[in-house]
Amino acid sequence: MTKKHKKLSAGATDRVIGMAWQDRCSFERIEDVSGLTEPEVIKLMRANLKPSSFRRWRKRVSGRVTKHRKRFKRFEAFKGSFE
Rank of each mutant, 00 (worst) to 15 (best):
N48K: 15
V16I: 12
R56K: 15
T66L: 12
K67G: 00
S52Q: 10
K4C: 08
E40Y: 00
V33M: 08
S52T: 15
L49A: 07
S81N: 14
R60V: 02
F78D: 12
R46P: 03
F82C: 10
W21L: 11
R69V: 10
L44N: 02
G63Q: 02
K70P: 02
G11D: 09
R24Y: 10
P39N: 05
A77W: 06
R29E: 14
K79V: 12
R64N: 09
R71L: 11
S34W: 02
L49Y: 05
E31G: 00
K59T: 01
K7Y: 08
V61T: 14
S53Y: 04
S9F: 05
T2C: 13
R46E: 07
V16Q: 01
R60S: 09
R71A: 14
S81Y: 07
S9N: 04
R56L: 10
V65F: 03
K7D: 05
K50T: 09
A77L: 15
G18L: 05
E31A: 07
K43M: 08
V65T: 13
S34K: 01
W21I: 08
T13S: 09
S34A: 13
K59P: 01
N48V: 06
T13E: 10
M1K: 04
S52P: 00
E28M: 03
R56D: 13
L44W: 00
R74S: 14
G35I: 04
M45I: 07
R74Q: 14
L8F: 07
R71G: 13
L49H: 05
P51W: 03
H5G: 07
F75I: 08
T13I: 09
T37D: 03
V65M: 07
K70E: 13
S26N: 05
M45N: 03
K79Y: 10
E76R: 13
R69L: 12
M19I: 03
I30H: 01
D23I: 11
A77T: 13
K70S: 08
S52D: 10
S53H: 14
T66F: 15
L44Q: 04
M1C: 11
P51T: 06
G35Q: 06
V61Y: 02
K70A: 06
N48S: 13
A10V: 12
R55G: 01
K79S: 12
D14N: 15
D14H: 08
T37I: 03
K70L: 07
K4M: 12
F54D: 00
S62D: 12
S81V: 11
G63S: 06
H5Y: 07
L49Q: 11
E38N: 03
A47V: 04
F82E: 13
G18A: 09
N48R: 13
P51C: 07
N48H: 10
T37K: 01
R71D: 12
D32H: 07
R29H: 09
I42E: 00
S26H: 03
A20R: 05
G35F: 04
E83T: 06
G80D: 15
T66S: 09
A77N: 05
V61G: 00
E76I: 15
A12E: 13
R15H: 08
R46T: 02
K70T: 10
S81M: 13
P39Q: 02
F27Q: 01
T2Y: 06
K59I: 07
R69P: 01
A10Y: 03
C25V: 11
K43A: 05
